[in-house]
């Protein structure tokens, strides 16, 4: 699977039919199959593309079947639906084969440095423990709310086959997700004692004698 679409679909999808499994769906040749996921020998109809969906991974069969089924059912719609979105060019956002660049490292490093900073201030007694917790709880909430709203929007848009603004929403979904993931790790560090207690309560784990 990875060989057939190396440098194409970032998620490794093969011949992904309209409306596409993700917000990156583009179809400039109007054949109803995402250009990024298309295997070298292009197919004209989604039904024929399903024959080429065979992959070396047996584990992925169920998913591919899902994709193929929906592709067949939407096959007739593709002919009319795709040229519109294709000519629209995904609302004018430039979509390269690599997609937009996300700021994984800068945001992660910035957040971790900021946490170390506030943690140092809190340990030195300069920052109120409540304020320290409040700031990081607010940030992680912003991350979850942002990811949740953009995620629901994207999923609804994929289900309805709407392409407008999908690139921009995907971008903000990803940026917010970085905040959410790093924020959650920080949240777990702040609430590490209740986190450990959770395992005790649920699985009756006992703490080591040294932790008394």
């Amino acid at each position: 699977m990875s060989d057939s679409c190396a440098g194409g679909c970032p998620y490794g999808l093969v011949n992904d039919p309209f409306p596409g499994q993700c917000g990156r769906y583009i179809d400039f040749n109007g054949n109803g199959v995402c250009d990024l996921s298309q295997v070298g020998a292009a197919t004209n109809t989604p039904s024929s593309s399903s024959d080429q969906t065979s992959s070396p991974d047996t584990s992925s069969d169920s998913l591919n079947e899902n994709v193929v089924d929906h592709g067949n059912s939407n096959g007739s719609d593709n002919i009319t639906g795709v040229p519109d979105s294709g000519s629209g060019g995904s609302d004018g956002v430039s979509v390269g084969m690599d997609g937009p660049n996300y700021h994984v490292l800068p945001i992660s490093i910035l957040l971790l440095a900021a946490y170390l900073g506030t943690y140092f201030l809190f340990k030195k007694g300069i920052l109120n423990p409540k304020t320290h917790k409040r700031v990081w709880n607010l940030l992680v909430t912003v991350g979850y709310v942002g990811v949740g709203i953009t995620g629901v929007l994207l999923t609804t848009m994929v289900n309805l086959g709407i392409k407008a603004y999908s690139q921009g929403i995907t971008f903000w979904h990803t940026e917010m997700a970085i905040l959410m993931v790093i924020g959650t790790l920080i949240h777990l560090h702040i609430y590490r004692k209740p986190f450990k207690r959770m395992f005790k309560v649920l699985f009756k784990w006992k703490s080591a004698p040294a932790n008394k």
């Binding site: 998620y11 093969v14 991974d57």
Partner: peptide
Amino acid sequence: SGGGGFLLLIAMELGIVLPLSPEMFY
């Protein structure tokens, strides 16, 4: 969901397509 998404993102940034990427995305 979050960990899988983060893994997909890092793989995407590095230009790697993992064998389980489509399933992970779903």
